[in-house]
């Protein structure tokens, strides 16, 4: 064990990332054996990988967003319903009001941004506990979306339709452009987190806010920015969601909260703040997506997935708690 940890390559990549990759591969092998054994149809092959990837795009953006918030020691579990709110309102603008598509996509990002701003403002400037803000925003997002769309679901145009070109963001021809977008965004997020003032400050304030404030840093502003960043990414996630799944229903979306948080904490971002890893989040998201695809292929319901995701989060966070206990 220690020998593996000392291996220079492993050291460079990070031990837990190696473990995560291992989990991802094992899981793929596991499903490749189990799915044919139970259902008779194959799992290995591109179609399921593409299915998992489709799921990974929007979830990835959500997870990247929430990574910034968790790095500050906060939480945002309004992201799922907010994504639905973005998708519903901008979709409604597109379908019912016939607004131009680019404007609608912008509206989507704008709504996400506004929610991020609102959440961040309340947490940073009003010191409202993040979980309360999340809870309120989650329900307000559902309410606003329902009011706006008069409780109707919205179907975005298909790729063959007039306004369907935005789907090329997810998949153009046979190329998974969504993957490129997601990885590109992850690289940008990693640079932001590790190489900019914003990233430095939010990680430090997640670790010791008062010390950062007493260094003359406007901690409130930067803390709010973390939520804002999350909001923007949620807005972008919406585009990939509707680009993959077409229909958005009012009143839903909260199941994605847990999956996004799961991807993030599995990747080594500490719930206590001050420690965040974008590459970890990326692998975490891929694991969650593969899990979802595998469960569907096993002809099991979403319910099982809810339970497994819950257990994953509990185990991942508990591992972090134990690691910190050992340090002290």
């Amino acid at each position: 064990m220690d020998k593996i940890k000392q291996n220079p390559l492993v050291k460079k990549v990070g031990f837990n990332r190696v473990v995560l990759c291992g989990v991802l591969i094992l899981m793929y092998i596991f499903f490749s054996i189990l799915v044919p054994a139970i259902t008779g149809s194959g799992f290995a092959g591109m179609s399921h990988i593409m299915g998992a990837l489709n799921y990974a795009y929007f979830l990835g953006f959500l997870s990247l967003g929430v990574t910034f918030v968790i790095a500050t020691g906060g939480i945002d579990f309004s992201i799922g319903p907010v994504m639905f709110c973005c998708g519903l309102i901008s979709g409604y603008c597109l379908i019912t009001y016939n607004m131009p598509l680019p404007l609608c996509l912008l509206i989507s990002i704008l709504i996400g941004t506004l929610f991020g701003l609102w959440n961040g403002y309340l947490v940073a400037y009003w010191t409202v506990p993040p979980f309360i803000v999340s809870m309120a925003s989650m329900n307000m997002a559902k309410g606003i979306a329902s009011v706006f769309t008069k409780t109707q679901s919205v179907s975005w145009p298909r790729s063959t339709d007039a306004n369907g070109w935005f789907r090329n963001l997810v998949k153009a021809g046979g190329i998974p452009t969504g993957l490129l977008c997601f990885l590109g965004a992850a690289v940008i997020c990693a640079i932001i987190l590790n190489n900019t003032k914003f990233g430095r400050y939010i990680i430090c304030l997640g670790s010791n806010k008062e010390a950062v404030r007493l260094s003359g840093v406007d901690t409130k502003k930067w803390e709010m920015c973390a939520y804002l960043m999350c909001g923007i990414l949620v807005g972008i996630a919406t585009i990939f969601f509707v680009g993959t799944y077409t229909t958005v229903q009012p009143g839903y979306g909260d199941t994605y909260n847990n999956e996004a948080i799961a991807g993030c904490v599995m990747g080594g971002t500490s719930m206590a703040g001050g420690l965040a890893s974008i590459s970890g989040t990326v692998i975490g998201v891929l694991i969650i997506s593969l899990l979802q695809e595998g469960i569907l292929a096993l002809k099991l319901t979403k319910d099982i997935q809810l339970i497994i995701t819950g257990i994953i989060v509990i185990v991942a966070v508990y591992a972090d708690v134990m690691a910190r206990r050992r340090k002290n």
Partner: peptide, 9 residues
Amino acid sequence: RRFGIVVGK
């Protein structure tokens, strides 16, 4: 520890 340094950095 509380007000001067960020210990984990």
